[in-house]
Amino acid sequence: MTDLSPITALGDAAPRQTSFGALTIQENAGLGLASLYLRKGQTAPAPFGMRLPEVSGAVQAGDYGAFWTGPGQWMIELPNRAEADVAALVLAEATEASVSEQTHGFVAFEITSKAGADPLEALLSKLIDIDTAALGPGRVVRTGLEHMTVFVIRRAEDRLAVLGMRSFAGALWHALETTCQRLESKT
């Protein structure tokens, strides 16, 4: 084990969290990520027993998750495994595929609502130009948010994750925080 101390994408020692009304934003610093890209002609593997989702799909199975990122491409999620060699773990499950470590390439913000889907969808309508009807539980989209490219994963009716490039973490946090704040003061 290294004796170096990691920092979060926001530059802190511990993940950041904040709440506005029904909405809570929590930085998910422990999320392990690796991209899985099929080789030419390869059939989709089933890493960690998961059936890899179809276009725009996201699945969660126990301690693992996967979401579609492009034709023949997925991101594999290993919650609370950010310190592990995630790419190696995924490659062991999909030996023929091209796997790249992505844990540290992204910042993940988990947003939960205490009042069901409405506050989440109101938030999304201020952030991304995606029809929330097409972003129900188990769906993922990659799109632009304030000029940044993000993944938005609808984990459940009342939960979603926004994954952005790690270097944009501060700007993304600012965008989410400002928007939540404005939604709260409107109600």
Partner: peptide, 11 residues
């Protein structure tokens, strides 16, 4: 063709 209609600004 895979994702349906999307804002041209994404492109």
């Amino acid at each position: 063709p895979l994702l349906g209609p999307r804002n041209a600004q994404e492109f």
